[in-house]
Computed example of a mutant assay.
Amino acid sequence: MTTNTAHGGGPAESASTADLVSQAATQISTLVRDELALAKLELAEKGKRAGIGGGLFGGAAVLAWFGLGLLLTLAVVLIDLVWPLWAAVLVVMVVVFAAAAVAALLGKQKLKAATPPLPSDAVAGVQADVRTVKTAAQTGRHA
């Protein structure tokens, strides 16, 4: 081991290149391992929060579903004040089925617009990148 007196000759400068590369590899390995452990802990915490949030959102959806049922029942009762019960139920049922049909048609249009499920913008970007690399490689060979 030789020391470099021009730069102060400290202990880091007396280490061989192989020792320095080995130390760097060890430090990088430790850094990556620590970062992965931190990411794992962070994802676990976020996963717990997402699970709780999803459960609360699901509970809210169930309560809203029951609320909708009660609202429809209220509509039947209100119409029953004017018409016979069978007519009130029939009217509310027709309105609900009409709303379902409209939602189904709109959903079908949205699904049709979303197909094929390929990331066309990303594919076009990759194809442009490949063309650029090919052009650069061909230009580099001719230069």
Rank of each mutant, 00 (worst) to 15 (best):
L56W: 04
L56V: 11
L56C: 06
F57Y: 13
G58P: 04
A60E: 04
A60M: 08
V62Y: 05
L63I: 08
W65T: 12
F66P: 00
F66D: 00
G67L: 00
L70P: 00
L70G: 10
L70I: 08
L70H: 01
L70M: 13
L71H: 15
L71G: 14
L72I: 02
L72V: 06
L74T: 12
L74F: 13
L74Q: 14
V76M: 00
L78W: 07
L78K: 04
L78F: 08
L78E: 06
L78R: 01
I79F: 14
I79N: 10
D80W: 02
L81I: 14
L81W: 10
W83G: 04
W83Y: 12
P84G: 15
L85E: 06
L85C: 01
L85R: 10
W86V: 13
W86F: 07
A87W: 00
A88D: 00
L90W: 04
L90H: 00
V91S: 10
V91Y: 09
V92H: 01
V92F: 03
V92E: 00
V92Q: 00
M93R: 07
V94E: 03
V94D: 01
V95M: 09
V95S: 00
V95T: 08
V95N: 01
V96M: 11
V96L: 11
V96Q: 10
F97V: 14
A98S: 01
A99Y: 12
A100R: 09
A101V: 07
V102K: 03
V102T: 02
V102E: 04
V102S: 03
A104F: 15
A104S: 07
A104L: 14
L105T: 08
L106D: 09
L106N: 07
G107S: 01
G107H: 06
Q109W: 10
Q109K: 13
K110M: 10
K110W: 07
A113G: 06
A113N: 08
A113R: 10
A113E: 09
A114N: 05
A114Q: 09
A114M: 08
T115E: 15
T115N: 11
P116H: 02
P117F: 05
L118E: 11
S120V: 13
S120A: 15
S120P: 01
S120K: 14
D121I: 04
A122K: 13
A122V: 07
V123N: 08
A124Q: 05
A124E: 01
A124F: 03
A124C: 01
G125Q: 02
G125N: 05
G125W: 04
V126G: 00
V126M: 01
A128P: 04
A128W: 03
D129P: 05
R131H: 10
R131W: 05
R131N: 03
T132W: 09
T132K: 15
T132Q: 13
V133S: 04
V133M: 08
V133E: 04
